[in-house]
Design a protein around this nucleic acid. Structure first.
Length: 559
DNA sequence: GTGTTATCACTGGG
DNA sequence: CCCCAGTGATAACA
């Protein structure tokens, strides 16, 4: 057996890494894989690594939906039996493990993990475990044994100790042990064993160590874990800890050549006000609660002009008013609240405002309900929550991205414009780019394949499917930020039909929600759901449009 | 194999 | 917001 590990430049192959370590002569040092930035949708080739990427995304997406469903039950707006445990993360991960949805389950991996990219975000430690990024459920240092010697594979820097979490490429990490975290035991000197020993060995062997950083306070609720890439352990020493006992300290330096974290880029640009310099102006002209900037670093083009509106324009006539509920003390009672009943007995959102799962149609409480605007059954009607900006892409015109991290299930924005009957839509000459065909909007997309096998009761049979109403939303002249969101065959958003102010099921509001955790500056996309050779012009000829989303699933044609 | 223990979790209450 | 105790699952270790 040779030395350690790791990855020749072209050996991203998952199976090789799992079956056994590759042998690289020590003198060559470590050849580090630098994965592409973002979610790997751009310019990818169909090979094992992109396939693995999709598996990782699917596993995480399923986990997020399942954990939200369990949380929904725990929060008590459910008819189901109450579950005692509040650890929705652990319950959800157990289900996925039983169903064999874990990824990278072979031997532990030193270096990059297939399918995981710098900047990927997570909400729970167990997510790291599910995809083989960091196996320890609580411990911050993960390691493997190779030829009788233990080597660190990954660390989680959550700020539980006084670690240096600044924006530099250097991280000072405190070792484990010594009863530092437990209050009921006497603190003692940390020993050079377990994780501490592994980091020491990694320092000597100069093998790459994955770093996952936690942002947000330990007890403050919103916490995000971000995969920060590969580091080398430069040095280690003993230091006096805050409790008067010796602790180990490790200095890690980020390996150059990896993409910068978008999180840091955004912070930096805000600090130096460069983003304000990029921002042409608020395209909503103050109509959104949060300004929507336009940035263009590609060319001189200005955003196209249109009239910004924040609510749908309906044709003259008779929209049936939504019959509201009479709840004055919360809308959680599945029997009393008529809106909850329409949703199949459960509020489709968690208390933090995340949608639980995709449904054919969601009923929010509305203007004719007696409940206040703080009702948990009002989410998408309240407008944009994230700092969105439109930006010029290199191949697909303008696109939309967020400056904030977006947790899976979050509401993004409505697709707003003029509602037209399809007859009228055909007569208009609006650019296809700014049309949304409501009939296309099937929620049973491939995004959620596999969910039903995990949660047998996932879809209640009583829910109606939106009929093909023959309506189109035209956002060419009047619209909102939603008109700029591009299509992708491998999207990170999905379109959800919602009713709250009227009852016409054929023309629901089109609300876009996050289908996964989305890092800052990653382009937001959804599946336009066109069918190839099913789009016609006014003369009845088949129309074609090429797709440039660049994802593995992309057929090259949008329609 | 099987029991024991350590662990930069997580939750909810005060 | 901060601190704390109670409940936990997982993997390493004996």
């Amino acid at each position: 057996m040779g030395q350690l590990v790791v990855f020749e430049k072209d050996s991203l192959d998952l199976n090789e890494n799992i079956e056994d370590f590759q042998v690289v002569p020590k003198s060559h040092g470590f050849n580090v894989n630098v994965p592409p930035f973002g979610h790997g949708n751009f310019g990818g080739h169909e090979n094992d690594s992109t396939v693995t990427r999709n598996k990782v995304r699917e596993t995480l997406r399923l986990f997020q939906v399942v954990s939200r469903k369990i949380l929904q039950q725990v929060e008590g707006n459910s008819k189901g039996r109450a579950n005692n445990s509040k650890r929705v993360d652990l319950q959800a991960s157990k289900i996925l493990k039983e169903k064999g949805k874990y990824v990278n389950t072979g031997k532990q991996i030193l270096g990059s993990v297939p399918g995981v990219e710098v900047g990927d975000e997570f909400q729970y430690r167990v997510e790291l475990n599910m995809i083989g990024l960091h196996r320890q459920s609580q411990s911050g240092i993960d390691y493997l044994k190779h030829n009788g010697k233990i080597l660190a594979t990954s660390i989680v820097a959550s700020g539980g100790y006084a670690d240096d979490l600044d924006n530099s490429n250097v991280l000072i990490y405190t070792g484990q042990g010594g009863n530092v975290m437990s209050s009921d035991k006497e603190p003692e000197d940390q020993k050079l064993e377990r994780g501490n020993l592994a980091l020491k060995n990694s320092s000597e062997e100069k093998n790459p160590v994955r770093v996952i950083r936690g942002y947000g306070s330990m007890d403050g609720r919103p916490k995000t874990l971000v995969y920060d890439g590969l580091y080398l352990v430069e040095s280690y020493w003993q230091d006096m800890g805050p409790h008067g006992k010796l602790v180990y300290k490790f200095r890690l330096r980020r390996i150059p050549g990896q993409p910068e974290l978008a999180l840091k880029e955004v912070k930096k640009s805000k600090k130096f006000k460069t983003r304000e310099g990029l921002c042409v102006d608020d395209i909503s002209h103050g109509k959104e609660r949060i300004p929507v900037c336009a940035v263009n670093t590609v060319d001189d083009e200005k955003p196209p002009s249109f009239k910004y509106i924040t609510s749908m324009i309906y044709p003259d006539g008779n929209l049936t008013r939504h019959e509201g509920c009479d709840c004055t003390n919360g809308c959680s009672d599945s029997n009393k609240c008529s809106c909850v009943v329409e949703n199949g007995g459960e509020i489709p959102f968690n208390h933090n405002g995340a949608i639980v799962e995709a449904k054919p149609l969601v009923y929010e409480c509305g203007p004719s309900c007696k409940c206040p605007s703080t009702c948990h059954n009002r989410v998408s009607q309240l407008g944009i929550k994230f700092q969105l900006e439109i930006f010029k892409t290199s191949t697909r015109g303008w696109g939309v991205r967020s400056l904030n991290s977006i947790p899976s299930g979050s509401f993004i924005c409505e697709y707003i414009g003029e509602l037209l009957e399809d007859k009228e839509a055909e007569q208009r000459t609006s650019n296809d780019e700014y049309l949304f065909d409501i009939g296309n909007n099937f929620t049973n997309s491939t995004l959620w394949d596999g969910l039903s096998t995990l949660m047998p009761d996932a879809q209640s049979s009583s829910l109606e499917v939106v009929k093909d109403g023959g309506f189109t939303i035209d956002a060419a002249e009047y619209g909102n930020v939603g008109r700029f969101i591009n299509h992708s065959c491998s999207p990170n958003l999905y379109a959800q039909n919602v009713l709250y102010d009227h009852d016409d099921k054929g023309m629901p509001h089109i609300m876009l929600f996050a289908a996964e955790n989305i890092p800052p500056l990653q382009e937001l996309t959804y599946d336009y759901n066109y069918k190839i050779d099913q789009v016609f012009d006014s003369d009845g000829n088949i129309k074609r449009k090429d797709c440039y989303c660049g994802s593995v699933e992309c057929t090259g044609r949008m329609y």
